[in-house]
């Protein structure tokens, strides 16, 4: 499972102060779905999926996603932010197995 938690963040280039920009991120994660036994009964175990994604910009929260197993494997998320100053966008993913994955990307002004 060495690939779990690999993150890519895409921020636009040529940003000007005051622009509302769109950020997109992807995390490698199995987002395990519920399995059933031969009788159709749900197999009870701790399925590993991401429950929460948070994004901050310049240290301030922008968006938080609460998620379920209805979200795709290797999920991608998009959100907007108002670019007020150059600085980092940080995205954090938390899963049901205690995994916490973070990555940052910098908003740079043209």
């Amino acid at each position: 499972m060495s690939d779990i938690g690999k993150i890519r963040i895409r921020v636009p280039s040529n940003v000007k102060a005051g622009d509302v920009v769109r950020v997109r991120c992807l995390v490698i994660h199995p987002m395990e779905i519920v399995q059933r036994d031969a009788q159709g009964k749900i197999i009870d175990r701790n399925y590993n999926y991401i429950t929460r994604v948070t994004a901050t910009y310049l240290g301030k929260p922008v968006v938080a996603f609460d998620l379920t197993q209805s979200v795709s494997e290797n999920p991608a998320f998009s959100f907007a932010l108002k670019a007020t100053a150059p600085g980092p966008v940080k995205v954090t993913f938390v899963d049901t197995h205690g995994g916490k994955y973070e990555a940052t990307a910098d908003i740079a002004f043209a």
């Binding site: 509302v20 999920p75 998320f77």
Partner: peptide, 20 residues
């Protein structure tokens, strides 16, 4: 499927996700 909680810092009410 999902709930997104936004703050005014977003500048625009926009979210996207890949869902099943």
């Amino acid at each position: 499927i999902a709930k997104a909680t936004l703050t005014p810092e977003a500048g625009q009410a926009f979210v996207g996700a890949n869902v099943r």
